[in-house]
Design a protein around this nucleic acid. Structure first.
Lengths: 211, 211
DNA sequence: CTACATGTATACTTTGCCTTCTACAAGTGG
DNA sequence: CCACTTGTAGAAGGCAAAGTATACATGTAG
């Protein structure tokens, strides 16, 4: 009934400390990305890393510390991949590169961590910055008021949704994706402008009739 | 040191069972909407409802049962307010009405419940339906393939983001909001079409130059 | 008046999961 | 060979939050 012991049964991969740490962070990122902090047990992470729970504690003080390390790394990678906080023509391609390079981390940050009260602070710096950048850019075309607030919240949120949808669609053609997302963002901005009533709205109506 | 007992000190609101149940659901919706299922304790809910924890158990068997009741009610209200699953000119105004009538429930459903493994089934019927409706409509303009998948995921997600952003911006002018969201959706759809390379992209470029 | 539904208050039990501890095995560098 | 690191396996502790129990108070309907 016991295992026939097929050969040496995998001689247990040993790694040096730093290497193992990274491997644990990889596994933890995958595990947390599936269900978020609360719904992910250390057992899940240990299984994902193919290690015992005890080993996790030789690298991290607590579940919360591990999670912070995961989020910090994801944030750092994102910050590095996207460069500065400015919004230029490379912003969307950079975002796609970042998401493509670390899809689990990307999803974890924006689908889960952003909603978790105990950890949202870690990424609020990012989201706050994007909102402010968006607000500054939009302020040239939209008068201060509720619609500016609306657009300044919506544009970054939409961009992230578009990137995640691109990940979910198996990341087709990054260049084309960047162009499409940029165009879509533009459509959203156009709809947020005061002129929307005449120009864009009527375009929307005629297009809807055509459908 | 004890309270000076300022008068009758509120004679304790008594309610009939059904009425109290609804009031608990209201309070629980608010509480859960702040932090989601895991991060919200029964004490938070009891405090929000101005009741003791014990009373919650006279109306609901467990925390999970209470949460399900909350989500079920929010789903039911949403389904009722939006009518059928079809997408017509009234779809977006209906969504705005629904969100405005039950903002906490709306946010709870789409910001938290949609990400919670144990409960996402409850609203997956809704999100799956929207995605399929979007896919059918988009299939007329976008050939089957990854970009259709992308757009079919993105359009409903964007619409929800736009509605939530509208809630966050203190719900300015519902009619104008509907028009702007419809126009924005159109911009997104246009960007998802194959023609995007020529028409919309160049529009995006020229607009970017103008900024 | 009486019975019951509604409510408070608080102490207690249970449970799940994080966290710690102990014992042992095996690869690696000096 | 020896010290050290990396690893397994599993038991046991601890704590926060869910869930249960009991005693008592008070409107309200029959």
């Amino acid at each position: 009934m016991s295992k026939p012991d097929a050969g040496p049964a995998e001689p247990v991969r040993r790694m040096r400390r730093a290497e193992r740490r990274e491997q644990i962070l990889d596994a933890a990122t995958r595990a947390f990305a599936r269900a978020g902090y609360a719904a992910t047990g250390l057992d899940n992470i240990a299984a994902e890393a193919e290690l015992t729970r005890a080993m996790l504690y030789r690298h991290f003080d607590s579940k919360a510390a591990l999670y912070r390390a995961v989020l910090d790394r994801a944030c750092a990678r994102l910050a590095e991949a996207t460069g500065g906080d400015d919004y230029d023509d490379d912003a969307i391609p950079a975002l796609l590169r970042a998401a493509g390079a670390d899809p689990d981390g990307f999803r974890l940050l924006f689908r889960h961590a952003a909603r978790e009260p105990d950890f949202r602070e870690l990424i609020d710096t990012i989201t706050d910055a994007s909102r402010e950048v968006a607000r500054r850019n939009l302020a040239r075309r939209i008068p201060a008021g509720p619609w500016l607030d609306w657009a300044a919240n919506l544009v970054p949120a939409f961009t992230l949704e578009a990137v995640i949808a691109w990940l979910d669609a198996d990341r087709p053609d990054p260049e084309q994706a960047a162009a499409r997302i940029a165009a879509a963002v533009h459509g959203v901005i156009a709809a947020a402008q005061p002129a929307a009533q005449s120009a864009v709205l009527s375009a929307g109506l005629s297009a809807r009739e055509a459908s």
